[in-house]
Simulated assay, not measured.
Amino acid sequence: MMMKTQVLLLLLLGLCAAAHAGCNKRLLRGTALDGRWIGQPRASSVGACQAKCTAHPRCLFFAYFSRWKACQLLTNPSYGSYAYGGVTSGYSLKGCQPKPPGKDECKKLAVDTMFHRTSNVGRINNVASAEDCQKKCTAEPRCGFFQYLTSKWTTDFRKNLCALMSGLPSEKKAYGKGIVVSGYSLNQCPKN
């Protein structure tokens, strides 16, 4: 028992240091991190609980109890941790927020790359090119980036579709050849 407590304490100390050092996406299954309780909203999943923690201004980490769909939002991680079946703990993703594009990146079109969505601002059908899609994104004040599905897209109703997205993409993924083009609103470009 003493060894298990020491291992959990070392794990907690390492994770606390990581939580304050930026982005920590690691989830701890079967371990409840214990801290000062600041809220307990209901959540349908671990991901939903993590999103609630990230959105809360004081939440540093969370414990999600799947049996009750209870999401404990926590701060002050100095209280420890304990083994508990059916719980998954993790950290706020505030430190994982995407960075704005640099001067060179913001004007370039990312061919064969799909930017991960945040939330849709709108969709425009029958757009002639990725350049035209970028112009439409730049003209829409809420648009931060876009995805353009070319005429090679697999389903007819989505061909030449310009999807406008808010904010900045959280990740970028390679996609098939000539099927998708992504890019930023020119309003995201540094001014100098």
Rank of each mutant, 00 (worst) to 15 (best):
L109Y: 04
G178W: 03
D132P: 02
C49A: 11
R42D: 00
L28I: 13
T31V: 07
P57E: 15
R142T: 06
Q134T: 10
I38E: 14
C106I: 11
S182N: 06
Q134L: 07
R142L: 05
Y175T: 01
A17T: 05
A110K: 13
A18M: 02
K159R: 15
Y64R: 01
A128S: 13
C162K: 04
L27A: 02
C106V: 03
A32N: 04
N160A: 10
R36Y: 14
G86Y: 10
L28S: 04
Y84A: 05
G80I: 13
C53M: 04
G183R: 06
M114T: 07
G122L: 10
K191H: 01
D156I: 06
K135Y: 07
M3Q: 11
W68N: 06
Q147K: 04
N120Y: 10
H116M: 13
Y79L: 13
Q6K: 06
T113E: 09
G176I: 07
K159G: 03
W37H: 15
H20I: 04
K108W: 12
E105H: 12
L12W: 07
P57F: 11
T154E: 14
Q50N: 08
C23F: 14
A139R: 02
A110M: 14
M1G: 09
K94F: 10
A43W: 03
A63G: 02
T118V: 15
E140D: 04
T138R: 00
Q134V: 09
C137K: 02
C143T: 06
G176W: 02
T113W: 08
M165E: 08
